[in-house]
Design a protein around this nucleic acid. Structure first.
Lengths: 159, 159
DNA sequence: TTGGTTGCAAAAACTTTGCACGGTG
DNA sequence: CACCGTGCAAAGTTTTTGCAACCAA
């Protein structure tokens, strides 16, 4: 299931590479593989760390460059939460999801809501006929840790 | 109308300042004023430029520090579109809006959609009873410049 | 061999911080 | 006078770029 999705995306990347005359390299392939195996939102640092476990001689620059390629061909999507770092997530054509972030503990939940997506498309048309390529919806709130939400502990208390 | 809104927010800031023992200074006041008069999303640079027209000896640091204060007291909201800079916008308690960004030319449109907002609240409750404090919805798409959308020119062509 | 690719380090771009001076209360 | 606030510049971070060496086709 998940593996086939990764394969689909890998094929998509190869297609893109072919079309653009890109060569296949050990580093790039390793980065793409690791990225496709990641879940949620991964930072450049985390990704590089993972990649280096298999291929120790990979540099930052290559990760940035590869992620830029992945973003261009629609496989990766950059996200900016509030922590200064850009994170990337796999953008399976399906399974798109949005985020609910707890402003207190930083917990990030993911969700999908077709009704909202549909309203977005309508909105875009109404605004002059824009053609949406992607979107980003982030809800910020307080997790009801009092209610015992799973994983809803708060490492950092706001002062 | 707009002026009264600015006054309300300025008062809100003064209240916050009093409560926190902050002093009133020429620079801070100038920055707050200029910020409240801004529309849309303003970058630190743009804001500093505006402020310097009246008070040439204001430094970057002060703008950053003031904007951090404004953010803390809920008057300003930081936004990260994709251009590397953090932009801020006035967060009038009312008039919340979301964004539609053209990935081709960088044009940013604003809109409101109550139906979407309502669905968001529902979503948050369904996800365990989160209490939303704010949200961010950004739609990325292509502006139909062919259709002659106002201001829809594309300064930078993607290659 | 012909480029695209890579790692490293330098360079950029954006923010934050340290410090001595200055202004407010 | 006590202290917060400011400007400047240095220090941090994160991301991009220049370049010689490398490697796939």
């Amino acid at each position: 299931m998940k593996a086939s999705e990764a394969n689909r995306l890998r094929a998509q990347f190869e297609e893109y590479a072919r079309r653009h005359g890109l060569k296949s390299t050990q580093q790039r392939d390793a980065i793409v593989d690791q990225f496709l195996q990641s879940t949620g939102h991964i930072s450049i640092d985390d990704l590089l760390t993972k990649v280096r476990k298999r291929n120790p001689k990979v540099g930052y620059a290559t990760v940035y460059r590869t992620l830029k390629l992945l973003t261009e061909c629609g496989i990766a999507a950059p996200r900016q939460f509030g922590d200064g770092q850009t994170r990337f997530e796999v953008m399976g054509g399906h399974g798109h999801h949005d985020h609910l972030i707890c402003v207190q503990c930083g917990l990030i939940l993911e969700f999908e809501n077709d009704a909202i997506e549909q309203l977005q498309d309508e909105m875009a048309s109404r605004l002059g006929g824009f053609k949406l390529v992607r979107h980003k919806l982030e809800l910020y709130g307080l997790c009801p840790k009092a209610a015992g939400v799973k994983g809803g502990y708060c490492p950092n208390e706001s002062k």
